[in-house]
Amino acid sequence: MFIVSLTYLVPLEQVDAFIPEHVSYLNEQYAKGRFILSGRKEPRTGGVIISAIADRKKLNDVLAEDPFHREGLASYEVTEIVPTKASEKLAFLL
């Protein structure tokens, strides 16, 4: 499992122009079971994605499809985690 932290590299006006395409990209990844949670940071400096993809190379390939990546709008910091404890509601992640 991976946590992906996006940080915007350009003004929000440039990011906003690609929000509809980014949302479509996210919807596709959710439909394929690759992403399990996402949202924007507050303050609005980027976003976070939690991915169920198990392979880092595969994750990199999927992230390369993101319009934010393609257009150079954001940098991506990826952290791999191995869940060992969860609340009852999130036990399915273990």
Rank of each mutant, 00 (worst) to 15 (best):
E28V: 04
E42W: 09
K57C: 08
P20G: 05
V82G: 11
N60C: 11
A74I: 06
E21M: 03
Q29T: 05
V82W: 10
F18I: 03
R34N: 14
V23L: 14
P20Q: 06
G39V: 11
S38Q: 11
I19W: 06
V48K: 01
P67C: 04
A52T: 06
T84L: 13
L26I: 14
P11V: 07
F18V: 06
H22I: 01
H22P: 02
I19T: 10
D16C: 09
V82N: 14
V15C: 05
K41V: 06
K41F: 05
G47H: 02
S24H: 09
I53N: 00
V62T: 11
D55V: 07
T84A: 15
F35H: 01
E77L: 12
P83S: 13
I81M: 15
V15P: 03
G72C: 07
G72K: 13
R44F: 07
P67Q: 04
E77R: 06
I19P: 02
Y8G: 03
E28W: 04
L9A: 08
V78I: 15
L59N: 04
T45V: 09
V48R: 01
V48F: 03
P83Y: 11
I36V: 15
F68N: 00
I53P: 00
S75P: 07
R40A: 08
I36A: 10
E77G: 06
T7E: 13
S51V: 07
Y8W: 08
V15G: 03
Q14W: 07
V82S: 14
I81N: 08
G46A: 05
V62S: 03
I81T: 12
V62I: 15
I53Q: 00
R34Y: 10
I50Y: 05
G33Q: 01
S38R: 09
G33T: 02
V78N: 02
L59K: 03
N60M: 13
A64F: 01
Q29C: 07
T7C: 05
Y25A: 01
F35D: 00
K41Q: 13
P11A: 10
E77A: 13
N60Y: 06
I81R: 11
H69F: 11
T79H: 14
A52K: 05
Y25W: 15
Y25M: 06
I81Y: 15
Y30G: 08
Y76L: 11
R56A: 11
F68I: 02
P83H: 13
R70N: 09
A64D: 04
P11W: 06
Y30C: 08
T7Y: 08
Q29K: 12
A54K: 15
L37R: 13
V23M: 11
V48M: 10
K32H: 10
Y30R: 09
S24F: 04
E71I: 09
T79W: 10
A74K: 01
S75D: 14
A54H: 13
D66L: 00
A74C: 13
L9N: 13
P20V: 08
H22M: 03
A64N: 04
V23G: 04
L63Y: 03
L37P: 10
G39Q: 12
P67N: 05
G47S: 06
N60T: 15
T84Q: 15
K32R: 14
F68A: 02
E21I: 00
R34Q: 09
E80R: 14
Y8P: 02
I19Q: 07
L63D: 02
F35N: 01
P20S: 08
I50C: 09
V15Q: 03
A64Y: 00
A64K: 02
E42N: 12
G46Q: 02
E13W: 06
A64T: 01
V78A: 04
